[in-house]
Amino acid sequence: MLIRKFKINESGLNRFFGPLEAKIMDILWNDIEMTIKDVQQVLDKKKVTNFNTVMTVMNRLVEKGILQKRIEGRSSLYSPVQSRVEFLNAQSKEMTNELMDEFGNIVVTHMLEALEDVDDDLVAKLEQKIKELKKDI
């Protein structure tokens, strides 16, 4: 599932989701499965919103393929389709591929310039990946 509306001026999960969607996903990524009422109660501690709004947003996340819904007895249990790490990995990979397709060398140049601000471990991983790519040529 690819989130098509990446918001560059936002941060964290708000780059991919609306504010309430982001809060809901943050809650669900920290638990296994939850009912709408469970999620709403966690949100209510923060004085966020009412049950019907949470229900609507969670069902829309199911429609978008972000959450899955499982019926157990009279309860509907919701859980993320992917872990937080899997989701962020898939989104960043897709965005990188789209940037490369559209802007090519410019993107690589900007990424390399950004390496000045990262730790040495990341640079070492990049160097290793470049060596692997060269072996395949």
Rank of each mutant, 00 (worst) to 15 (best):
L2M: 08
L2F: 11
R4F: 09
K5N: 13
K5H: 12
K7E: 08
K7G: 00
I8Y: 04
N9Q: 07
N9A: 09
E10Y: 06
E10R: 13
G12I: 03
L13D: 04
L13Y: 11
F16P: 00
L20Q: 01
I24M: 02
I24C: 01
I24S: 00
I24V: 11
I24Y: 00
M25L: 15
D26N: 13
W29Y: 13
N30M: 12
I32L: 13
M34V: 04
I36L: 03
K37T: 11
K37S: 13
D38C: 07
Q41T: 14
V48Q: 04
T53S: 10
V54M: 03
M55K: 14
T56N: 11
T56E: 10
M58K: 03
N59Q: 11
N59H: 12
K64L: 10
G65T: 03
L67D: 03
K69L: 07
R70A: 08
R70M: 08
R74E: 06
S75W: 02
S76M: 06
L77H: 04
L77E: 01
L77P: 01
Y78F: 15
Y78H: 05
V81K: 09
Q82C: 05
S83G: 07
S83M: 05
R84D: 07
R84C: 05
E86I: 04
F87K: 05
F87W: 07
A90P: 01
Q91H: 10
K93F: 06
T96D: 02
L99S: 10
L99I: 08
D101C: 07
G104C: 06
V107C: 07
M111Y: 14
A114M: 14
A114N: 13
V118M: 07
L122A: 10
L122P: 00
A124H: 10
L126V: 15
L126N: 03
E127Q: 14
E127P: 00
K129V: 07
I130L: 14
I130E: 06
K131S: 08
